[in-house]
Amino acid sequence: MIIHQLALIKREIWEHRSIYVTPMAIASIVTLGVLAMLVFASGFAAELDLAIFGAQNLVGEPERIAALTAFFITTSMVFVVALAILTVFYCLDSLYAERKDKSILFWRSLPVTDAETVISKLITAIVVLPTAAVIGIIGTHIVNLIVMGIWVSMKGGDASVLIWGSVSLFDNWAAAFIALLATGIWMSPFIGWFLLVSAYTKRSPLLMAFMPLILIGIIEPIVIGTHIFAEKVLARGDHFPLIRTDNLDRFFDEEEWRVAEDAISLLTHIDVVQFFTSPATWAGILVCGLLSTGAIYVRRFRGES
């Protein structure tokens, strides 16, 4: 079973090279962007020296950390957006392409059940894709911190204080990993839905996946006068129970410039217990399970077409 799953997941990565190519491409683009910014900034030599001197001596440590953490969050967000798009396209393609190119006949000629196949795609969407994104995030951070460190040193700043001493790197990476995995679980009803559409639809999976969601969102308020679907389903991302909202508000509270020290580590904004004890998390897992079971049955009963 486990050997099968590993082979199946490897197969998914072979087929969908974008799983690792996309994070690598983003990492390169971000690094190029940072390099361009540094080259541009170097043009203002006098102001820069002053700023670095100021950062080193005047500004408090929490502020420095907050500034670099903001860089962390911004670069990570690029990966998160890409991950979301990648996951949608991956899921919609995963059971559709094999029917389109008829290779499903070959896959089903091997002793692998439809359930094993669909589960491998689910694991790829919920675990493998976020993991690849986190590796991309970590790689981007390391490369860019090195680049910035060298640059600061060249300008006469103390990189060990300004760059490396400022950030709780492992805290932030652990936070990114937990957040992305939890996002996959939280949004898994959509992943299940996309897999079902991918197994079912005869054409344009993207349209077939989003049209019903949009239509229900429009029709419900008109016909019944409620907004339950829009609030509970379409806006599910807004209710993510992993994030401690009170803390995050403090982090982004610009009015109060001084950053609370305990709010800087991204891990402090994450509440895994709250996430796993939220009924909405389990309701989502249940819906994902039902929709994925639907995908298994469609693949099994449809035959070849």
């Binding site: 072979w14 087929e15 094999e98 190119d101 008829k102 290779s103 499903i104 006949l105 070959f106 896959w107 000629s109 070849e304």
Partner: peptide, 12 residues
Amino acid sequence: FIADVAVLPRWM
């Protein structure tokens, strides 16, 4: 079994 179309996955 070998089915009536060349069904090996083309990307592999």
